[in-house]
Write a protein that binds this DNA or RNA. Sequence first.
DNA 1: TATGAATGAGTCTTCATTCAT
DNA 2: AATGAATGAAGACTCATTCAT
Lengths: 211, 211, 211, 211
Amino acid sequence: MTPLPKDEAKRKRIIAAAIEVFAHDGLSNGKIATIAEKAGIGKGTVYEYFGSKEDIFAAVFKDFFDQMMTGYTQLIDAPMDPVKKIELVFDYSYDYLDLLMKDKHGQDWLIFLEIFLQGFRDEFKGIGKLSFSAVLREVYDIFKPIVEEGIQAGVFRQLDPDYVTFILFTALDGLSIHYFLNRDHYDTDKLKEVTKEIFLNGLLQPSQKGN
Amino acid sequence: MTPLPKDEAKRKRIIAAAIEVFAHDGLSNGKIATIAEKAGIGKGTVYEYFGSKEDIFAAVFKDFFDQMMTGYTQLIDAPMDPVKKIELVFDYSYDYLDLLMKDKHGQDWLIFLEIFLQGFRDEFKGIGKLSFSAVLREVYDIFKPIVEEGIQAGVFRQLDPDYVTFILFTALDGLSIHYFLNRDHYDTDKLKEVTKEIFLNGLLQPSQKGN
Amino acid sequence: MTPLPKDEAKRKRIIAAAIEVFAHDGLSNGKIATIAEKAGIGKGTVYEYFGSKEDIFAAVFKDFFDQMMTGYTQLIDAPMDPVKKIELVFDYSYDYLDLLMKDKHGQDWLIFLEIFLQGFRDEFKGIGKLSFSAVLREVYDIFKPIVEEGIQAGVFRQLDPDYVTFILFTALDGLSIHYFLNRDHYDTDKLKEVTKEIFLNGLLQPSQKGN
Amino acid sequence: MTPLPKDEAKRKRIIAAAIEVFAHDGLSNGKIATIAEKAGIGKGTVYEYFGSKEDIFAAVFKDFFDQMMTGYTQLIDAPMDPVKKIELVFDYSYDYLDLLMKDKHGQDWLIFLEIFLQGFRDEFKGIGKLSFSAVLREVYDIFKPIVEEGIQAGVFRQLDPDYVTFILFTALDGLSIHYFLNRDHYDTDKLKEVTKEIFLNGLLQPSQKGN
DNA sequence: TATGAATGAGTCTTCATTCAT
DNA sequence: AATGAATGAAGACTCATTCAT
């Protein structure tokens, strides 16, 4: 169904255009015609690279997802003590969003949520091809090694690592979204400090305090 | 344009139907005709109560928002020490979602996000009538008194209450969404415990530990 | 799927317009927009009466079919000796086409063939909802009683009535189509005479000749 | 526009592919891309051999027409008495269709009708390049010599040969189409017998009976 | 006040055809 | 001569909204 990509650069251009258009107009309101125009190609050409609008959603999602995860996995895979990693993870979340927003189309990030929502609904109805909840759990698991390492080293409180990971990542997710929506109203450095103060103290063994 | 509702019960029925329909089909795919049918009225009648589909979005949003906030404000206004309040706020978040999901249409909650997204996009484009970021900051502020009280009483760490509030609420928001999407995979009581363990320790003065 | 007809007269008007349009432009090339325009209604209204273009094909087919068959069945059900009936059936075929062609849109008749062709192809592919070969055999059977009566009365040759019926009707069908395509080149009365001369002599017992 | 074919074998392959595709999908739904693929060539190459889709229709029509007529003309040109010829013509019609249907793509025959229909419509609108009614009359005329010979020899009834020819051929055409659509329901040999019984008796002088 | 028939702007998608390689 | 990537005109169908009853 989905045709094989002939020209990878053009495919990227379509995805970039799609992100812009969907971010500006919404998933439903974003028109294929606009995407084509913005990508500088004919309307029909879009269908040489993607089988349908929905396929574009999927590609956009994957693009965003991969890009975002790359940063985290690099952090997590680095040889470093878990406390430092946690700090970096939090810092990175803010920095990544700042980096995004420096870009002309930083707010494009929001369609990630919209695609996710739609995908989740489809999954719920049994229509979806992708299990978004499974994707989610995969994401949590990326952070689990840090937590496990910290707990095993006796640096973090002795809590169930699955639960701690869930709480950490999802809190971080909430933080990110709202920071994204409100970044003008907060000082990033101060926010970073307070965030780390709260989460590290929440996480660390009492004896470790003073860190 | 939007005529005053003559029959408040019917208006409620339309909103309820709209929530169901939008939750199942999405904001764009949800049809006025389906809403009318589910509400047991004629298609044209919907327009006697709402000026447009977008007005229904707004009404649905307000309905959800008010309902959700009511619970929190009751907690917050109660005479109680701030530590206890924070605990209750976290517990309530999980309980509220559990309560929602017991209902046949628990997942309807998700459209809240979708409406928010659309509203935010409109705001960004300067089209929106409502400032969703202002709404957001109002929400944060609901929680600020607890934080301020705790800090002033010397029970919470001496941090900027605005920042603490932001972090607390937005973390809670992330927690809630992901709990909603994954509640089958976690034991609620255990999750409550670990959540409170982390956040309270993150919040409380070292001397208060053991509380 | 197919909505219930609200206004039977309007439904008829749509069918009439569809016949005209399809006859002029072909099944595939005939546009819903043109049909609507010719019927004096909006494009969307067509879909209030028919679920899809294909549904219109079916309705047009049924309309034609019923109309054509009505004439034949009246003939066949009349109390009359079989020889006379056969004569009338042949005469009627020519007369009916002449009648059609007197009408401004006589050539519209041709789409009957096209719908039939498409339906038959769909049946072949297992897609079709209607079995066109079954319809065909039903049609043959309408004529069988005349043949059976003539054979039993000893007026027609002693041949298998199923085969005689098939040959008679299908020959008549070929005659009709070609007459339709070439009527300007033949004198109808003379054609009627020769047709009857050949078919009656082919059908009648030798002793009956001179009839 | 239509370039001269360079490779006659390839041209034939395209026509063969086109027949298959059109027969399976219909004239409008049959795609050039599918034809090219089935012919084992590139899409663009089709246009090296045919100027347009419509040109392919014409080529397909001609191919079919020539093939079908070849059989008849061979029969008709053979030195043989007219009664025998008529018998052979009828037999041949059934045999030819049986032969076609033994082939994997026997039903491809139907597109002949569809092309004819479209051509006739174009002729009616004054667009067509070919006069399909003229083609038709040419076909009738192929059979006329047999009829004339039989009448002149006093073997056939003394009727206008033009009319007899028209009736014979068009009846034969109807017979063929319906036989094609229903051949599973009839015994071919029996059908041949009854057909000849009826048509020969209809045609022959009474004194010739028993022939 | 309630209705639902009518509407047409709007959008995805298809595919014959072109043309640079 | 052969190709297939690119194209955009075209068309079925949807659905929010209107308005006569």
